[in-house]
């Protein structure tokens, strides 16, 4: 598990910022206290692609969170990354205005109409292109830069490391990639699986496989997990049951039953950090606004240490980092996702 020394001779090399999730004020504080350079979060409404019941921020908690982060020299990024629905633009405009008024460093947006609004009304507020904006090529990213002055783009979890490198080479927009957390196997912003089953999707209401449609059903020794009545998985006695996110269920294809789309796994790029830094990636994002403050703190602490280790020559992955991260990994399996060849 020892990686090679980073090629510090290339001009692209940079120490990436660590961007961590906050679904609540305690999670924000936990991220800041454990070394996040920036915290991303969203409002308690449909403007937020992680619109989970009981989580997220109102104006008061956001104001306090911004103060806590800024006092410590950190940034707050506000994700307003669902698609404004016809006739309801005011809700999304209000969220952008509130983020500006409350002192956020940047808004993370997906919809082009909303990007245009933010650029016009709040030119001083940085604009990041959300992963939900599905920009997978430098042409798309440069377009967002020309049109809306986008400063950073978050890449969908579909590109290989070589493709990420190629994007960075062809743009002056900062590039942010996902580094740790549960893995969306689908191209974000272009997945309607959730609404096909339930009528609600990340693009429209900010939720995937929403909890209100989940039903657990004990049938003899079997536990069935249903989403709006559709059987996503069933678990035998003693088998650990997971949340029925529909792309992570077990299904039958041509007589074979298994994880036809994706096994529950966590992305973990720690061993790729030297290559990511050498590629010139500006920021690494941790997934998990639905996770606890303790989770956020633990993951932030380990990634902070790993990223700091890039500053000295001879980066080597510490077994302790990986065992700490493995404890919190979904399904207790880790993968390099699309960055690596096995997905290819």
């Amino acid at each position: 598990m020892v990686s090679s020394t980073p090629t510090t001779t290339t001009s692209a090399f940079r120490i990436p910022h660590l961007v961590c999730p906050a679904g609540s004020l305690p999670a924000l504080k936990s991220a800041v206290d454990n070394g996040a350079d920036a915290v991303y979060l969203g409002f308690k409404n449909a403007t937020n692609a992680r619109n989970f019941a009981g989580l997220n921020f109102d104006d008061k908690s956001l104001r306090e969170g911004v103060r806590y982060a800024r006092d410590r020299g950190r940034e707050v990024l506000v994700a307003i990354n669902t698609y404004p629905q016809a006739g309801r633009l005011a809700e999304w405009h209000g969220a952008v205005d509130a983020a500006a008024d409350l002192g956020a460093t940047a808004v993370i947006l997906a919809d082009v109409g909303l990007l245009a609004y933010a650029a016009e009304r709040h030119p001083a507020l940085h604009r990041h292109l959300s992963v939900q904006g599905s920009a997978t090529s430098y042409e798309a990213i440069n377009f967002a830069q020309d049109a809306f002055g986008v400063r950073r783009a978050v890449l969908p979890r579909v590109l290989t490391l070589a493709q990420v490198e190629n994007v960075v080479r062809h743009t002056t927009v900062e590039i942010e990639v996902f580094g740790f957390g549960s893995l969306c196997v689908m191209n974000e912003g272009r997945c309607w699986l959730s609404s096909y089953a339930t009528g609600e999707s990340p693009n429209t209401v900010g939720a995937c496989s929403p909890a209100k449609y989940v039903r657990w059903e004990q049938q003899g020794k079997t536990m069935n997990a249903r989403l709006n009545g559709i059987l996503i998985d069933s678990y035998g006695e003693g088998e650990p049951a997971g949340y029925p996110t529909l792309c992570k269920g077990r299904f039958e294809v041509a007589g074979e039953t298994g994880y036809a789309l994706e096994e529950p796994t966590s992305l973990n790029v720690v061993e790729l950090l030297p290559q990511i830094a050498a590629a010139g990636v500006a920021a690494i994002k941790v997934e998990g606004r639905q996770r606890s403050p303790a989770y956020v703190g633990q993951v932030t602490r380990v990634l902070r240490q790993a990223i700091d280790a890039l500053k000295a020559p001879g980066f080597a992955v510490k077994p302790a980092w990986q065992s700490e991260l493995a404890k919190v990994a979904e399904g207790h399996q880790v993968t390099l996702g699309a960055y690596d060849r096995p997905w290819r």
């Binding site: 191209n187 997945c191 699986l193 096909y196 036809a260 996702g337 997905w343």
Partner: peptide, 18 residues
């Protein structure tokens, strides 16, 4: 409904996308 970096048909056959 959705796009992915992964090829599910190849995966079903135990093949790599490439």
């Amino acid at each position: 409904l959705a796009f992915s970096a992964r090829c599910f048909t190849a995966r079903h056959y135990g093949l790599k996308k490439d």
